[in-house]
Design a protein around this nucleic acid. Structure first.
Lengths: 215, 215
DNA sequence: GTCTATATGTTGATAGAC
DNA sequence: GTCTATCAACATATAGAC
């Protein structure tokens, strides 16, 4: 089988490129116009294809949506992932994470897609199941590692196990999304930051300065 | 219009009673057999009615499901609510909350229904929207009040605002449900309790003793 | 109050032409 | 690779008989 970057049988390379292009476009549409019941047909129209044309690139609706979220993570990682997960300190991880959370506040449709698929992927047979399991594990590994290092350095309370804390941070982020979707006034980033503040024993009202967002 | 408990035109009282009976039965079915795509037709069969027969008591599927969750809360409150929210101390609230979380671990179908509807109710037009908004507000009020009292009494870190902390506790519970549905090995109660432990500055490994569950 | 039957609407998926 | 056309599968909601 031809590998990425290879030229033989250009149709394959072209197919992959087009796939990525579709995913990026779909993500932009959802980010800009929200997730309004997003059927395959609607998404297809939004990216300039017919329903059948779009499904030519994906086995099913579920796979399509899963890949959109994968692409989302890929793009987010361009920010969050500029740090080296094995050596980054808590402030870097915290800042990167807050950046992502703030960005999410600007793309409700993407957050809704994520939340919907999260629940549907509960079924082990669901095409997105593995994606969510692995995504969570990766996220918690990054958090867990930095928490461990911070605890060792005395910067973070040792009252709670590192892996448990990592799990809690993930839960807070996901749970806050639900609250925020229900009531958009909820300040996701502020709340997450307050948690970090409390955990690092930082004086109240301090917080991390807001960065500029970049879309 | 006849009020509850009145006898004239018994059909009304009977209708209400039957409604409650249906909701209780439906909840039991979901608790016992899980939420497997639960269509109105399936639920109807499970409670011994035809689809149309069941919808005779509810305006729509969405209303039916909302009422099932309302009934769930009503029953949970029989445990969680034995305490007086305006005077209960943190240990009581903590114990009651943990009890509910542990109970949830035994009824995955109910948790799935809750999570699904949570996301769908994001739309302000959805029949369950108000339910979830009010439910969250009530929950956070209870938590916020007890946190405030505990902070005043010096039992809880003052590093974080009481209302923010209440929101975080709610978010953790909801977020953990997602993790647990995806991977049933996740220990929801243990994780929630670890959070309480850290917040109250309790020595690690302490925790609240597990109670017997009662179904 | 409950059932049978059906109207109605969607959607995802596929076959086949171009 | 892309479109048109069509399918099959459901599910909810409603009408009307009993």
């Amino acid at each position: 089988m031809p590998k990425t970057g290879q030229r033989r049988r250009g149709s394959y390379a072209k197919g992959v490129a087009k796939r990525e292009e579709i995913l990026t476009a779909a993500l932009e549409v959802i980010a800009r116009e929200g997730y309004r019941g997003a059927s395959v047909k609607e998404l297809a129209a939004a990216v300039g294809l017919s329903q059948a044309g779009l499904l030519h690139y994906f086995d099913s609706k579920e796979e399509l949506f899963t890949e959109i979220l994968r692409k989302r993570d890929e793009l987010d990682l361009a920010h969050f992932g500029t740090l080296d997960a094995t050596s980054a300190d808590i402030d870097e991880v915290r800042a990167g994470y807050l950046h992502v959370v703030r960005h999410n506040s600007e793309v409700p449709g993407v957050v809704e897609l994520f939340s919907r698929l999260s629940v549907e992927a509960v079924d082990p047979q669901h095409p997105a199941h593995r994606f969510f399991v692995e995504r969570g594990a990766t996220l918690r590994t990054i958090f867990g590692d930095v928490v461990r290092r911070s605890q060792a350095a005395g910067r973070l309370t040792g009252a709670i196990d590192a892996d448990t804390l990592a799990r809690i941070v993930q839960a807070v982020a996901d749970g806050l999304q639900l609250q925020w979707m229900l009531e958009p006034d909820v300040d996701m980033a502020g709340t997450v930051d307050a948690l970090f503040r409390a955990l690092t024993g930082e004086p109240a009202g301090e917080g991390l300065r807001e960065e500029e967002d970049d879309d």
